[in-house]
Nucleic acid binder design. Structure first.
Length: 266
DNA sequence: CGGGCCTCCTGGTAGC
DNA sequence: TGCTACCAGGAGGCCC
């Protein structure tokens, strides 16, 4: 789930389900997700206040409390993380690792089957982002076509590698990098230094369109069209553009899918 | 710097 | 049935 569109979907879910209700406790069922942070620190920072606002940068989600001098909650969803709100009397969902319990008897749960997610505290999201050297969020309005172009000009290597590099642009993972490449008509193993000005412009425009559309689909609860590569990620998957079979190749330990006929390699 | 590969984890599935 | 190998939307670290 958790690439930019999924995390944005979760951010909106967090906003609609978890703002403004006082927190009475943070239950840490699995300290591994805290990566060394003491569970009592979460309690100390959050209990008594309610969540007041959210912020997302790439695949990271942050939430502030109503009391300004407190740190922000940081959530990262790894490969299998997700949020689920329960109401008074409902049982905690499967794979719940951390639960934020509200005064109304409900709770917001971080579920994470594979336990690769993370829960933390940061003084300031912008400082955290800077410390991690994350690139601009892929949907940041400030990431204009010229700004994108300028960043891209400083990179070398496979397009796929650049798109999934969170220090280049934050938010794209294995799935959406492939999706953007297909929609832009560019093969993922193209070398970014070989892209033309038009290619780069198309890439920027397409990246935003694909991510925006994915968010819309998630918000509407609709299935992704079969023309999307993410529905065809298997050895015999079809390219809905040309009717041929998709290609796949291992890249950094996982599979990249693309259509060699519809995506030009430069 | 980029790419290949390993690790941290769990669990579903394919193949024998 | 039981076992093994491999796979899954992330990320950090090591090596070349």
């Amino acid at each position: 789930m958790p690439e930019l569109p999924d995390v944005e979907h979760m951010r909106r879910y967090f906003e609609s389900e978890a703002l403004g209700v006082p927190l009475v406790g943070v239950e840490v069922r699995d300290p591994l997700l805290l990566r060394g942070l003491e569970p009592s620190a979460l309690d100390g920072a959050l209990v008594g206040a309610g969540f007041a606002s959210t912020y997302r940068h790439g695949k990271y989600l942050f939430a502030s409390t109503a009391e300004g001098d407190r740190p922000w909650l940081l959530l990262h969803f790894g490969m299998t993380g997700g949020l689920e709100r329960t109401q008074l009397g409902e049982v905690d969902p499967r794979y719940t690792r951390v639960s934020f319990r509200f005064a109304d008897g409900g709770a917001l749960h971080l579920r994470d089957q594979r336990r690769l997610g993370r829960v933390g505290l940061v003084d300031d999201p912008a400082g955290f982002v800077a410390g991690k050297r994350l690139g601009p969020d892929a949907l940041d309005p400030a990431l204009t076509a010229p700004a994108f172009d300028e960043r891209l000009a400083q990179r070398r290597g496979f397009l796929k590698g650049v798109l999934t590099n969170q220090q280049f642009v934050a938010g794209l993972g294995n799935i959406y990098a492939d999706e953007v490449c297909l929609a832009a008509g560019l093969a993922p193993f193209s070398l970014v230094e070989h892209l033309s000005k038009d290619d780069r412009r198309e890439l920027h425009k397409t990246m935003r369109r694909v991510l925006g559309k994915a968010i819309d689909l998630l918000e509407a609860g609709r299935d992704f069209p079969r023309s999307w590569l993410l529905t065809q990620r298997r050895a015999d998957g079809d390219c809905r553009g040309c009717g041929g079979k998709v290609a796949r190749r291992r890249f950094e330990g996982r599979y990249t899918y693309w259509c060699p006929r519809c995506q030009k390699e430069v």
